[in-house]
Simulated assay, not measured.
Amino acid sequence: MSEAVTSAPATPVAQARPAVAVVLSFAAGATDAFAFLQLGGIFTANMTGNLILVGLFQRPGYTTTLIGATVAVIVFALVAYLGFRLTLSRVGPSRGARLLLITATVVQVAVLAGYALTDRPLERALLCVFIALSSVAMACQTVIGRTIEARSGVTTTFVTGTLTSLMQNLANGKRDFRTVRTLSIVALVGGALSGALAVATDPLLGAALPLVPSLVALALLATRR
């Protein structure tokens, strides 16, 4: 008689990863909307956009744009490197994802609190501080998405790679990960729209909105359902 094989229960991260990727895509859209509209026209999730901004020397206020975009790219790259190192260490990807998401949430709280307490318009130095903090949060969330949902090719802070993977599979007649890729793209746009509406209502709401999906993602990672 063959021995019965008992499969190990799926971990909370394994069960929650598609939903987490979609929720973090919404967070990226909301964060970029707030950053672009309130932090000097800089993206803190989409680094491709910042690299383009560096080349637009005819843009009004180019010096501020150059400094802000440079801060965002450097901070994002450094934190992403450290985040990937964390997930590859003895901590492991599951615990690493939780630690990174907690870090991102705490940093977003700091952005909200600081933005609420400072006078606006922001001086250049404070602008760079908020850009750096927001970039830390987005880098952490990007590492989480690439770590726990690597197979689907979903990138939570930019959609070019996700859109390309979706179109490639459709052209090949494959259905793998079609739902999570499509929802991730829709969530990013929805997050940007929601962020813009929040900023139009009250800039402070724009700073607070990214906290909601972060807390939802934390809840998803903490439960098996």
Rank of each mutant, 00 (worst) to 15 (best):
V186N: 00
L166T: 00
R175E: 07
T142K: 12
M47G: 10
A217D: 10
L197E: 10
L66V: 09
L78T: 14
G92V: 03
T156Q: 07
V75W: 09
Q168E: 09
P60I: 09
T103D: 10
V111M: 00
A187M: 02
G206Y: 05
G55K: 01
A222I: 00
F34N: 07
R151S: 15
A10N: 01
L193W: 13
L82K: 11
F158S: 10
A16W: 03
Q58A: 15
A69E: 01
I102Q: 11
A217H: 01
P12M: 07
V20C: 08
L170C: 09
A110F: 13
Q58S: 14
F158E: 02
A45C: 06
T70C: 07
S165F: 00
A192L: 02
Q141C: 15
L37T: 14
A27C: 12
D176Q: 13
T223V: 04
R146I: 05
A27N: 12
Q15G: 06
T157N: 11
A8R: 14
D176T: 11
S184C: 01
S2M: 13
P213I: 07
G195V: 06
S135T: 05
F130M: 09
V23N: 10
V199W: 07
V154K: 01
F158G: 08
A97T: 05
G114F: 05
A69Q: 07
F36H: 06
S7K: 14
T63G: 13
L205G: 04
